[in-house]
Computed example of a mutant assay.
Amino acid sequence: MGIDESYLMPAYVKLLVNDAARAAAFYEALGFTRIHQDPVFVHLRWARYADVFLVAMPQAVSLPGARGVGVLLCFHAGDVSLETIATRAAAQGATTDGPRDQPWHTRELLVTDPEGYRLTFVEPTPQFIA
């Protein structure tokens, strides 16, 4: 199945955004693929079953402050190195932290998107695979 094929998703995340075009461009620069777009939302995919929907903020809604406080969206880095993702994020002006080795045998990169949502890209360390 190709990355642009439809399937039932057992889980996905919706992120309310002020500027869907800017947010979509950021995610695509990181390596997400745009699956669908309409006036209300943009469907992006990192990998199979790793989908994100960017939803335009309704005019009556205001979410001041940081988005996703206490929530991290985690993505397996796959074939893309954490250093490459960090470089792509920095080129978009994003704040990054890492990559850092974690005690649970992964290396992780934290990226904060333009809306304030925090994404973690993860790759296993050799101890995890062993």
Rank of each mutant, 00 (worst) to 15 (best):
T84D: 14
T87Y: 06
L15D: 01
V13N: 00
T96R: 13
F53P: 01
L63R: 14
V40I: 13
Y12Q: 11
E5C: 11
G98S: 04
P10A: 05
P114K: 04
L72F: 09
A24W: 06
S81M: 01
D4T: 15
A77D: 04
E28N: 14
A11H: 13
E5D: 11
V80E: 04
A20L: 08
L109P: 00
I129D: 08
G31S: 10
V13D: 03
S62R: 15
V122Q: 10
Q127R: 13
P103M: 08
A50K: 12
I35A: 02
F53A: 01
P64I: 06
A50E: 13
P58T: 03
G68Q: 00
V80C: 05
V17N: 00
R48H: 15
P124Q: 05
Y7R: 14
D113K: 03
A89Y: 02
R118E: 09
V40K: 13
V42Y: 01
G68S: 00
V80W: 03
G98I: 00
D97L: 11
Q59W: 11
A90E: 15
P126K: 01
I129Y: 07
F32M: 02
M9Q: 15
R67L: 05
Q127H: 10
R48Q: 14
V69T: 12
G65S: 09
A91M: 04
T125W: 05
A21K: 11
A130C: 09
V17W: 00
E108V: 09
P39I: 02
H76F: 14
R22S: 11
G68W: 02
L15H: 00
A86K: 09
W104G: 05
E28A: 11
L54N: 03
G93W: 08
H105Y: 13
A23E: 07
Q127C: 07
W104A: 05
R88A: 14
F41G: 08
Q102A: 14
E83S: 08
V52K: 02
T106Q: 07
L15K: 00
S81R: 00
I3F: 04
E108K: 06
A66M: 13
I35N: 05
P126E: 03
A86G: 05
Q102I: 08
R107L: 03
A90Q: 15
P64W: 10
L73P: 02
Q37F: 08
Y49R: 12
D79A: 14
R48A: 14
V13A: 11
G31Y: 05
F75D: 02
P39N: 10
S6A: 15
L73Y: 02
F32P: 00
I85C: 03
R34E: 05
P103Y: 08
A20D: 01
W46D: 00
F53E: 00
C74K: 14
F41C: 10
A91W: 05
E5G: 09
A90M: 14
A90I: 10
P124D: 11
L110S: 10
A11V: 13
L82F: 01
M9A: 15
V111Y: 06
P103Q: 06
F75I: 05
V111Q: 06
H76T: 13
M9N: 15
I3Y: 07
R22N: 10
I35K: 14
P114M: 03
W46F: 07
P58V: 03
